[in-house]
């Protein structure tokens, strides 16, 4: 398979497992990958082995993981492949972030896993924003953010009742973005239902500093990562802080943003009075 310029060989001793893996990857990469039988130069390889009841994952020839439940095994394999693409894509830098498009600009929400990215993105999409991704902002040398519109991972329930559903954006009546667009806003928030919403505006440098923590290839290639972060964030409004309910926050974000994303047009109340 190939995605964002990263060629990956996936092989298996079991035809059915390989077919299921291909289907799983197609689903999760949306249209951002191609599968072919071409066995040319590959950067990475994964082996999927079926051995009795077990499914075993090898990465670059070395044992990586195993499991007995195929669905969980494939889901895990999928996340490992995605992360490898995100780390090694030569012409793009992947930021672990939710991302939507709005009037020709994108908003990105860099955050760790389980910090509410997908929920916030889904609420913005329900309000009319274009869906770009609930996992990655994908930036290029020109600072443009590319869509990676995999199905949204929406979680419901709590504790042992927690479940995760992969929901195509059309199922929430949303539309996936198709064009790379500049980043107009970066929002670095954590969800805290107990706290009052409070955001402060960061400088470009501070914003890049906070975002590089979520920049997947940063450790491997800090120079290119920093260049692309600069290109993509140098004209963005960058906010950091605590947010409350995703639905309310999504409304606040969109109702405070003008067509041109001119910072002067953003209500002061949006920043909790603590901005520069």
């Amino acid at each position: 398979m190939e995605s964002f310029g990263v060629r990956i060989r996936i092989e298996s001793n079991d035809e059915e497992l390989l077919t299921d893996a291909a289907e799983n990857l197609r689903w999760a990469f949306a249209e951002k990958m191609e599968i072919s039988d071409d066995d040319g130069d590959v950067a990475l390889s994964f082996g999927l082995e079926k051995s009795g009841k077990e499914f075993i994952l090898y990465r670059d020839g070395e044992y990586f993981s195993k499991g007995e439940i195929k669905k969980i095994f494939l889901k895990y394999m999928n996340s490992v492949v995605r992360n490898r693409v995100a780390e090694f894509a030569p012409d793009h830098t992947f930021i672990h972030a939710g991302s939507v498009g709005w009037k020709g600009r994108s908003f990105i929400f860099p955050a760790k896993s389980f910090k509410g990215k997908s929920t916030l993105v889904s609420e913005l999409v329900k309000l009319g924003a274009d869906y770009y991704s609930d996992e990655y902002a994908v930036i290029d040398d020109n600072g443009l953010n590319h869509p990676f519109p995999r199905p949204l991972s929406l979680r419901t329930g709590e504790g042992k009742d927690l479940r995760e559903d992969e929901v195509p954006v059309a199922e929430i009546n949303g539309i996936a973005g198709t064009e790379p667009i500049p980043i107009g806003m970066v929002v670095l928030t954590e969800f805290d239902p107990e706290s009052a919403e409070q955001l402060r505006r960061l400088t470009t440098g501070e914003g890049i500093l906070e975002t590089l923590v979520h920049t997947i290839p940063f450790a491997r290639d800090p120079e290119t990562s920093l260049k692309r972060l600069k290109s993509s964030l140098n004209r963005a409004i960058i906010l950091k802080g605590i947010r409350g309910d995703a639905k309310d926050f999504a409304l606040t974000v969109l109702s405070n943003i003008d067509n041109n994303l001119d910072s002067e047009l953003i209500s002061e109340s949006f920043f909790g009075g603590d901005n520069e």
């Binding site: 969980i72 999928n78 672990h96 927690l162």
Partner: peptide, 11 residues
């Protein structure tokens, strides 16, 4: 690169 990423498991 995986420091902030989920391992893909839910629970």
């Amino acid at each position: 690169a995986l420091a902030n990423m989920s391992c893909g498991c839910i629970t």
